[in-house]
Structure formats: C-alpha cells, structure tokens
Design a protein around this nucleic acid. Structure first.
Length: 649
DNA sequence: CTATGTAAACAAC
DNA sequence: GTTGTTTACATAG
C-alpha cells in the first residue's frame, strides 16, 4: 500500500474499487498540507489543517518520509494490506476510530461549510459492496449499512490531517448523502474534494494522482511580481520578451482565482473549488494574451536554442543553459532558488533530451557535463520529438512485425536457395548504413524516415552511447521494448554485439568522439592509425570490421549525420589523413559537402572527420544510406560472417 | 492528433 | 546532488 502511489492512484483505480482504499490511503501524506504546499515534500514535520485550526496540541510525529497516514504499525500484516478489498477495510480504518467522535470533529473541522452538512453522528464505517454500472462501466459504491465499528471503538486519540474522521467515515458520508445512496469512485473523490478542505486543497486535476500532493508548481506562476523577459542586449531575444509597458502575465494573474494556481486556500471554507486544478491551466484572462507560457511565446526549446545560438561557441553546458535562462528571462530569474528552479530546470533537461533539435556532445573528462549544441541537421523551426515507446508498442511495432516477417522470409529464401550467397559486398565501407535509420523500421522511405526512425530508436542507450562511447553501460531499461525485435545475429537483444564482437578498442575509442577531438582531424596518434590499418585490412571472418549495426549500437544514427561543432571552420574537409584516400576519397563539394550527398552526407562527413579515424572509415558509406534494402544487408552480412547467417528465429 | 509543459522515476556519475 | 533519459499526463490549438 505504501508503494507506488503514482501507479495505483492512477485512473486504474477508478476502474477498480478494490483500489479505493489503497488509493485513498496512499494519497494521505501528512507532510502535504496546505501550509506546506510550497515547501519541500521531504520536510518532515507539518502542521496539519486540524491543528492549525485549534488543536495544535496534537502534533504529529516527525518522520522521514511517509506517504500514508498513519505510520505503519508493527502488528500490521502488510501482506494483507497491499491491496485491501473495499469491503475488508484497511487496518488503519478498523481499529481506533470512534465514528461518532470523528464525525463530530469532522463537522467542527469543516467549519460548517459542508453543503450537506455532516451532522449524522450515527454514521458507520463504510463497508460497502460494489456494483457495476450498467451504463458507463463505472462502479458504484454502496453503503451496505453494516456497522462494524462498534467493536473497534477506542479513544479518539488520533487525528488525520483533515480531521478525526476516517476515510471510511468520509466515504460513508459521501454515499449516504447521495440521492441514490451510491456513488462512483470518482464521485467519491469529488465529494471529498468538495466537502473536505484538506482534500479540496489536494484536488489536483491530475486525477491519476488522486490526492497525491503536488506541492510544487514553480513553472506556472502564482500571483507574483511582474515577470518579464530580460532580453535587452541579446538580439536573439525576440521583442515580445519584452521589456516594459505591457501588463505582464504575472500581473494578470494577480487576480486569478487561487484554485487555478494551486494556491492553497487556507480559509478552509466556502468556495467550491474548480474541479480541474492543474497548475498549468491558464486563467481565462491570460488566454487573451496569446502567450502560451508565463514567460512569453517561446517554448523551452526555443529558448534553449536561443541560448545555444547566443553562445560564442554555439555550445553550452547544462548549467550554462540554466544560467542563460536566469539571466535572460526574468520569469526564471525570479525562480532561481533551488527549489523553485527544479521545475523549469527539469523542463530544460527534458527538452534537451527530447528534441532532435539539440545534440549532446560528450565533454572531455569524467564527471564533466556535456556540451549541448544545436543539431545542424535539424529543420528550421519545429523538429520532431522522439516518438514515445507507446507508439512503438502499437502501430510501429505492427509495421516492424510486418517487416520482420518479410525479412525472415527473405532469410529463409536465401538459405533455401543457397548457403553461399556469394560475397558481393561493396567492401568495408559498403554497408555502412544504419539499420536504425533504415526503412526496415518505418517502411516510409521518405525524407522524414531518417529522422523519424532516429526518433523512434533514440533510446537512452543509443543516445547516450552515441557520443560518449564509454557510457554504454548507461543504458536505458526501456531497451526491453526491443526484446521482441529480432536483432541481427551480431546484435543481441539489448543492442550489443553478440556473434561478431566489436573490437574493444573501437568501442573504447569512441571516447575520442569528444569535443576536443572534433575540432580537428589532424594529429591522430600513430597507433590509432595503425589500428585503423589493421582493422581495415582484416580479412572477413578473421577480424571483421564492425558492421553498420554494431557501429550504430555504439554511435547511434544521429551522430552519423551531424556534428555541429564542425560547423564553420570545423566544417572543412579533413586534411592530413593520407591513409584515408582509398576509402574516403570522395571529392568535397564547394561547401564541404561531398557530392554524393543524399541529404545526410554533409554532416556525415563532418562527423567522420571527428571520429576516431578507424570508426570514420568503417562507417563511411559509399552508397547512399537510403538505398540499402534488406537483401543487400543480408548479402553484406553473409559476406562478413563467412556466409553463415545465424538469425535467431 | 500534435505540440508543449510539467512532474517524476530512474540511472549514471 | 547533478546530469540525462524516459514515461506519463494535462492542456491548448
């Protein structure tokens, strides 16, 4: 019961009345009181509403972290409380409460503001049955009239944050007051919100959170002093960020009802709160401002982009981005305290990670934060976000399944026709296209397929290992979603190599894909060159170079296509790499773009110049990425594995 | 439906 | 604690 507040309090609980109690109880955190709504949730001691209303002699115990009320007691058998059925009650509700007392206290604590009153001191604890609504499938909670509280009455020595009434009593009241003596779970919730001040304060519209307290919302303004951009001196700041004169959002918000701003009403009375109290909700008067955010029109990603663009190097570390926000946007400056900034900093990080518009470049040295840069291949304006795994699980996965079936069939056909599909590999560089950016996944070989596939498969592992190399262990647990994908034999289900291992030195040297290395391709250590020769000259099957998939698993597709640090002076053809000529011999176009550009090659080249040289060469395509098909992939792999396919089908 | 904002879990460092 | 990734959800358009 104590765990997974978020999970069990989600909408699921609305469908399962058995979760009512757990949900309700999980939502009870005595540390979350209105008076502490802007404090740290981890602060320990709180004054509860009731105490603030005159019973401060009954102070709660200080505790580290408690998501329920009351504390677990030793005699409780938690195994029986993890998912109590509603008709069973829960231990907390069974033992110590005097319903009459609670009701009286309840009436007192509610200050008489309950519309229907709570004067029925005979109300019993709730032991309800449930029936399914024939219409909406919503389950109604019925008060079945049993009063089992008689044997459990003890002194009313305990208080809840909302008063002395137990949940059972509250629910009882709710049900008894309903015309039909039955309520759906959501109606019970609503009743709570409307009739109990404590819950009213917790009536966050995020219904999945129930009354899970969210006592911090620093990203949407309260009624605060004027919030304006501080864009002066920064030409990248658009005029709207502005400056003076026009009424600010915050000013407009000053007259906003607190219910929409998560300002806890401390009066404990009267007003029926808005049902939806998501803190982001814009007050009506702000809708007319056409400012989607309290700081202005620009999104986080827009601002991040501005920050990066305003940087001399076009790159910033995370904390520098933070600082830019604070320095240039008053809204964020006004929320610079650690606690207040947590929200918008989180949003910044979220946006950085989420948008293909941004790229992370591993900084040198352990413990140093990365550089963030604008993805030079990002389209102007909006760029796609990564597709979420849920999408992957549904439509895309269906596409993948279809593709996979086709691939299997091809493999079987190939096997059947010949075990020796003779080597027709185009050589080391001939199969450099990434499976991750191949239409194997999307079936939409249009211009967007590269991006979309990248987005789709920019997992944590891929994206992290993209540039860092050494951070391969920083893998995403969500890679599990690919468990069902038949990785090629050289790639195990987690994306790592299997049948054909990546030479460890190659993996290790992906660390060289760092900002410093990106500044020039000259001066590569002699030993690396030698390794390069060794790898490249290796015979297939003896020391096969990593296939495109392997490298993709290390580098990811994005960094195959871009390296913003090579823009400008860095976007020049690599020089002084004579040993590349046989593999990297394309002519450079006038803009440093190889003539065989297929839309991604321009930045491919730039990346290659920044890679450890062996990796660059090993991934050089001498045919456009998009021209690869499954058959050529298979042929290539046959050529690289002594003509033995080892698909684990 | 998409874009965005917000919150949070989680992992690596 | 910071950084980074990801998921989930709410809201606006």
């Amino acid at each position: 019961m104590l765990y997974s507040m978020r999970e069990s309090s989600h909408c699921r609980s609305h469908r399962d009345p058995s979760l009512l109690f757990s949900s309700l109880c999980q939502s009870m955190d005595p540390s979350q009181t209105p008076s502490s709504s802007y404090g740290s949730p981890r602060q320990d001691v709180r004054l509860m509403t009731l105490y603030e209303e005159g019973e401060s002699d009954l102070l709660p115990m200080a505790r580290d972290r408690c998501n329920t009320w009351p504390l677990r007691r030793p005699q409780m058998d938690l195994t029986n409380t993890t998912s109590p059925l509603i008709h069973e009650g829960i231990p907390e509700e069974r033992d110590e409460f005097d319903s009459s007392d609670q009701l009286n206290v309840m009436g007192l604590s509610m200050g008489g503001d309950t519309p229907n009153g709570l004067n029925d001191s005979s109300a019993a604890s709730v032991y309800s049955s449930s029936i399914c609504s024939p219409t909406g499938g919503s389950t109604s909670l019925l008060f079945n009239g049993l009063d089992t509280s008689a044997g459990n009455k003890k002194g009313a020595t305990r208080r809840n944050a909302w008063g002395n009434m137990s949940y059972a009593d509250l629910i009882t009241q709710a049900i008894l007051q309903s015309p039909e003596k039955r309520l759906t779970l959501s109606q019970v919730y609503e009743w709570m919100v409307q009739n109990v001040p404590y819950f009213r304060d917790k009536g966050d519209s995020n219904s999945s959170a129930g009354w899970k307290p969210r006592n911090r919302c620093f990203t949407w303004p309260m009624a605060l002093p004027p919030s304006v951009y501080m864009g002066g001196g920064h030409p990248s700041i658009s005029p709207y960020m502005g400056y003076e004169g026009e009424p600010t959002v915050a000013q407009l918000l000053a007259a906003t009802p607190s219910s929409s701003l998560q300002v806890p009403p401390m009066d404990g009375g009267g007003s029926i709160p808005a049902k939806k109290k998501r803190c982001r909700r814009k007050p009506p008067d702000q809708l007319a401002q056409k400012k989607p955010n309290p700081w202005g029109e620009e999104s986080y990603s827009d601002l991040i982009a501005k920050a990066l663009e305003s940087s001399p190097d076009g790159r910033l570390k995370l904390n520098e981005i933070y600082q830019w926000f604070s320095d240039h946007v008053q809204y964020f400056r006004e929320r610079s305290s650690q606690e207040e900034a947590a929200g918008w900093k989180n949003s910044i990080r979220h946006n950085l990670s989420l948008h293909s518009r941004f790229m992370r470049i591993q900084n040198e040295g352990a413990g140093k934060s990365s550089w963030w840069v604008i993805n030079p291949d990002a389209k102007p304006g909006r760029n796609p976000r990564r597709t979420r795994a849920t999408t992957m699980d549904t439509a895309t996965k269906a596409v993948m399944d279809k593709k996979r079936r086709g691939a299997r069939k091809k493999v079987m056909d190939l096997r059947g026709s010949s075990s020796a599909l003779s080597v027709s590999s185009s050589g080391v560089g001939g199969s450099s296209s990434s499976i991750l950016s191949h239409d194997v996944y999307s079936g939409q070989p249009n211009d967007d397929s590269l991006v979309s596939n990248y987005d789709l498969f920019r997992t944590r592992a891929a994206s992290t290992s993209v540039v860092t190399g050494s951070s391969l262990n920083r893998s995403s647990p969500t890679l599990d979603q690919f468990d069902d994908f038949d990785f090629p034999p050289w790639v195990d289900s987690s994306g790592a190599t299997n049948a054909v291992a990546i030479p460890s030195d190659i993996l290790d040297r992906t660390d060289q894909m760092r900002i410093d290395a990106l500044r020039g391709a000259n001066g590569l250590p002699r030993e690396i060159k030698q390794e390069l020769k060794t790898v490249i000259k290796s015979e297939p099957g003896v020391a096969p170079p990593p296939s495109y998939q392997e490298l993709s698993s290390v580098r990811g597709p994005q960094q195959l296509t871009q390296n913003p640090l090579l823009r400008g002076q860095l976007m020049k053809p690599p020089t002084g790499i004579p040993y590349l000529t046989n593999l990297n011999s394309y002519a450079w176009g006038p803009l440093g773009v190889p003539p065989n550009s297929c839309g991604v090659t321009a930045s491919q080249v730039s990346v290659q110049s920044a890679l450890p040289i062996d990796l660059e060469n090993l991934t050089l395509p001498d045919q456009p990425l998009m021209d690869m098909d499954m058959e050529s992939i298979l042929r290539h792999e046959l050529s690289q594995t002594n003509n033995q396919l080892n698909f684990d089908i």
